[in-house]
């Protein structure tokens, strides 16, 4: 039952190794993900053990993001006079980016007249 996890960890290691050896700016896990995608495409299917491990891990993502969010809380006192700029970039900046990307994507999809996909 640990085969899926072993595969994920091996590709994570491989991605990290490639990053160190070649010095590319892309993070190791992203390289690992691209390798995994290539592997699945060559193999033509998802092994059950990988499916089980993936589902478990993806469901735990919100827990994994808790520590960096704690870091954000402890960052506030050290911002000094720059908090206005940080808030401006993070709040309206993100809202505008979300809206811009969504509208752009919607227009591009509509232009190709793709059928609507229901959830």
């Amino acid at each position: 039952m640990f085969r899926g996890l072993l595969l994920l960890l091996s590709l994570q290691c491989l991605g990290e190794a490639i990053k160190v050896l070649t010095g590319v700016v892309i993070p190791g896990p992203v390289i690992g993900m691209l390798l995994m995608l290539a592997l699945l495409m060559v193999r033509g299917g998802v092994p059950e053990s990988l499916d089980t491990s993936t589902e478990w891990l993806l469901g735990r993502m919100p827990l994994l993001f808790t520590p960096p969010s704690v870091g954000l809380i402890f960052l506030v006192p050290s911002l000094g006079g720059e908090w206005g700029a940080v808030l401006a970039v993070a709040v309206p900046g993100t809202l505008l980016t979300l809206l811009f990307t969504a509208v752009l994507m919607q227009r591009l999809l509509a232009a190709r007249r793709q059928p609507e996909h229901d959830q």
């Binding site: 896990p29 690992g32 592997l39 499916d51 891990l57 994994l64 993001f65």
Partner: peptide, 15 residues
């Protein structure tokens, strides 16, 4: 936990 975040990134290849 941040190491596991890297593992999750690799797992994103499945969906």
């Amino acid at each position: 936990l941040s190491l596991l975040l890297g593992t999750v990134t690799v797992a994103l290849a499945v969906p």
